[in-house]
Simulated assay, not measured.
Amino acid sequence: MQVLDLHWNAHQDFWALWCGIKPSVCSLLEPEPAQPMQKTCRVEAQAGLMPARAPVEVLLDLCLKEDTLDETLSYLLKKAKQRRSLLHLCCQKLRIFSIPVQSIRRMLRLVQLDTVQDLEVNCTWKVATLGRFLLHLGRMGNLCQLLLSHVHVLPHTTPDKKEHWVGQLTTQFLNLPHLQELYLDSITFLEGHLHRVLRILKTPMETLSINNCLLLESELTYLSQCLTVSLLKDLDLSRVNLTSLSLEPLQVLIERTSATLQDLELDECGIMDSQFSALLPSLSRCSQLTTFRFSGNPISMSVLESLLHHTEGLSKLSLELYPAPLESYEDVHGTLHLGLLAQLHAQLKQLLCTSGRASMV
């Protein structure tokens, strides 16, 4: 045996095939023509002449959580430790949640890290803890998708120390030549340094998600000019405060990616009427756009109506997530008047029907 596939959904048709449920593929199970019996001879094993045994590759997806290692996984990790040369754990998808970094490092020493293609690190870590993990990240040379979430710096961290950790991260990014999808959620230590990460990336990005992070206007400008984002399919800047920033760089970025952009998310960015109106001409050129989300922004009814007019020509756009219009609130405390909201919603639906887009959600 060379490969043991333990993915949860590996070869879903396996049992159906053997039970004869799918007759169209039953021919695969027909016995092969009998081969002439070959006379075998017994060869005594001699020292130094035994062929080297090829390792068995065990394919599985790993989810590392506190107290969630089941009996099978514990057994595999134990065997991989005992027989490193004969049992290789290959992991395409790796999820890491709240678990001590020492335990993570101990387990990852048993995994063929160059087989990891999809990594999610969803831990509330101090940046120093992330630093102890980065050497393992740098060994994932075939990584295509990376999510880093909730890495923060202590209030008294000096600029030199922060600079050190940013340098450590960017150094490991140099070892990820295939990275195409990057998700950064609540990564506070990158404030003012995001351009250094983007500068390292060489492969054209398909997905860039920066959530709940502080972006400087200079970083937004750099992002709009970065060569690696010119072919973006998905852009998510949700919960990035853009209220006080010029959105001209974002307008440039949307125009640059208008031929490829499929999913745009700007939820809870504090975008005002005047800012959003400036984005509408660029948005109207996104011919491949299928989903646009911008809930949680203080937008008026007139601007929402203008949005519908500007997106009339986007034939692939099927889902738009709007904020409740400003006119539907009773007071400055954010109390919704449900009757007004229903009335304004009906007006927007009528506009969609009039423009022949009644099926849009």
Score class of each variant (00 low, 15 high):
Val197Phe: 07
His156Met: 09
Gln46Ile: 00
His309Asp: 12
Ala259Lys: 12
Thr291Lys: 11
Gln117Ile: 02
Leu304Tyr: 00
His309Ala: 11
Leu326Ser: 12
Ala45Val: 01
Asn122Asp: 13
Ser74Phe: 05
Phe276Met: 11
Lys22His: 13
Arg42Phe: 10
Leu338Thr: 14
Leu110Ile: 02
Leu351Ala: 07
Glu191Gln: 14
Asn212Lys: 14
Val25Glu: 13
Met140Glu: 05
Val58Gly: 04
Ile96Asn: 02
Pro177Ile: 06
Asp13Val: 10
Ser318Pro: 00
Thr290Met: 06
Gln12Arg: 13
Leu242Ser: 03
Leu174Gly: 09
Glu217Gln: 15
Lys65Cys: 13
Thr311Pro: 03
Phe292Ser: 02
Leu242Tyr: 06
Leu62Glu: 04
His309Ser: 11
Leu304Val: 07
Arg53Ala: 12
Cys63Met: 10
Ser85Asn: 12
Cys91Ile: 09
His152Arg: 14
Gln288Leu: 05
Lys39Ala: 05
Pro36Asp: 15
Ala358Ser: 13
Leu198Thr: 01
Leu86Ile: 04
Gly192Asn: 06
Gln2Lys: 15
Asp263Cys: 12
Ser244Trp: 08
Leu73His: 11
Leu73Lys: 07
Val121Gly: 00
Trp125Asn: 01
Arg139Ala: 15
Gly48Leu: 00
Val240Ala: 07
Ser230Lys: 14
Gln102Pro: 01
His310Thr: 08
Asp61Arg: 09
Gly167Pro: 03
Gly20Ile: 08
Leu89Val: 05
Pro159Gln: 09
Cys63Ser: 15
Leu94Val: 05
Ala47Phe: 00
Leu348His: 13
Ala34Ile: 11
Glu255His: 11
Leu28Met: 13
Cys90Tyr: 03
Cys226Gln: 10
Cys90Gln: 13
Arg132Gln: 12
His136Gln: 14
Glu265Val: 15
Pro31Asn: 12
Leu307Tyr: 02
Lys79Ile: 08
Glu71Gln: 11
Ala10Ile: 05
Leu289Lys: 01
Gln2Glu: 14
Lys316Asn: 12
Lys316Gly: 01
Gly138Trp: 05
